[in-house]
Design a protein around this nucleic acid. Structure first.
Lengths: 239, 239
DNA sequence: GTTTGATTTGTACATATGTACAAATATAAT
DNA sequence: ATTATATTTGTACATATGTACAAATCAAAC
């Protein structure tokens, strides 16, 4: 038995240290740029130890994902449910967006909650290609994304769902980029803003996204036979 | 003399083929995931040929950058100047944003103009870490970024510059992410939108960004003496 | 203390990698 | 044709990489 959980593990230390080190290194340098030996060294462990605990390098990555995904999505769901209960329609929209953004930043120094490090990791993995990784991300997060999109759509019934998809997609991109290159904000603002200030970043993201979501939809796309009606039979049905 | 340009090169083919192959591979899989041998094979060349033409793998990357940067920034400058001449203030803002976005997508099948492939490359390089690469990107693009920020600021004098920095930063992040993971848009919209449709992406990005830029600035940061008279004069304007 | 099983160490191996370089080949000028 | 130069090929080397595995070490159960 490799795993004896719950009761007594002898040294949860090493395995934990390896996970932490890998998370940090992967989220900073990407997957390919980091070697198993780098991780072992950073964790103060032996390379063989990594193989022992996680079998392969991919296995290690997967474990990091699994360890964060559930808590993070849970946190988001909680915040989303709370947001949906907000009465005022405008406040509600803002609350929903904030519920999406917050868990991605919450530095949750140790474990649960998601946190900036894990979000940065996802950003890098998204960019680095690797279809397998992308599929993992999709499988793990699409449900939550749909839940948010639907919630937003309910707050903005007059905006087509497609439009909301685009704009919340932009939100995620903006979020990723801010976590990956915060110094760019500091540089371009000539020091007036601090790109690494999570609080400020969150506020800017939320306000910017709320504004973009509220913008009038594009009229162009649909062929517009008659009065749209037919247009797109499966228009997500506004509820 | 390695380079005899202008008049007669014997075979501009191989060097060119290597550049093209490398560009494609890097922009799809990132820098670290692609080996010199991969590139050589894709170009139908010998690994040694890569060393001959570009000395090192980094040299090859640098060359790809240099070859696209100047034309791309030129194109952007042209479009920006044209945009600045637009009379109507609202139209001008939109034109400016479009001038920023367009060259990043223009598929410019062969050379000049930037194009999606090159933008994707920059996106990946930004995410992959590698401080050297980030510095190259910064040096090459910060001037243009500043020019756009200033132009936007002139169209929106009541919005603090810092705010504009944040929001145009978000634009770039959204743009990058859309180029890197277009299939996510298709998936989340359940096929109603095509994330890979450059025209649609551009339109969505422009409209979304214009709306976000026009949003009222956050009141929080500044000590906020008095009543913040400014309040929210420009709320995305319905029209 | 002895036994048992989990972990850690050390090391090894096969392969992939970036780069170097000499030889072969192609291309143009004379 | 001969020469000079530019390119391409083939191959080699040193190093880095992911992973495997036997031996050593450790912590508890008996």
């Amino acid at each position: 038995m490799i795993k004896l959980d719950g009761k007594k593990m002898r040294k949860p230390n090493m395995r934990e240290a390896i996970l932490a080190a890998a998370e940090e290194l992967f989220s900073t340098n990407g997957f390919n740029a980091v070697s198993v030996r780098d991780i072992a060294q950073a964790a103060g462990a032996n390379p063989g130890s990594v193989t022992y605990h996680f079998k392969t390098k991919d296995g290690l990555l997967l474990e990091i994902y699994q360890r964060h995904c559930v808590p993070m999505n849970l946190r988001r769901s909680e915040l989303l449910e709370a947001a949906k209960r907000v009465r005022d329609l405008k406040d509600r929209l803002e609350a929903i967006v904030r519920a999406y953004v917050l868990p991605a930043f919450s530095s949750g120094s140790d474990l649960a909650g998601g946190g900036a490090r894990f979000t940065r990791l996802r950003a890098i993995m998204s960019a680095e290609g690797n279809d397998v990784t992308r599929r993992i991300i999709a499988q793990t997060f699409d449900d939550t994304s749909h839940a948010f999109i639907d919630a937003i759509h309910e707050s903005l019934p007059h905006v087509p769902r497609t439009e909301i998809v685009w704009r919340s997609h932009f939100l995620l991109g903006a979020l990723y980029y801010t976590l990956v290159t915060p110094e760019r904000v500091s540089r371009l603002s000539r020091g007036e803003a601090d790109g690494a200030d999570a609080g400020e970043a969150i506020e800017q993201l939320v306000q910017s996204t709320v504004a973009s979501l509220q913008a009038p939809p594009l009229e162009r796309p649909a062929p517009a036979r008659r009065r749209s009606a037919a247009g797109a039979p499966a228009n997500a049905g506004p509820a």
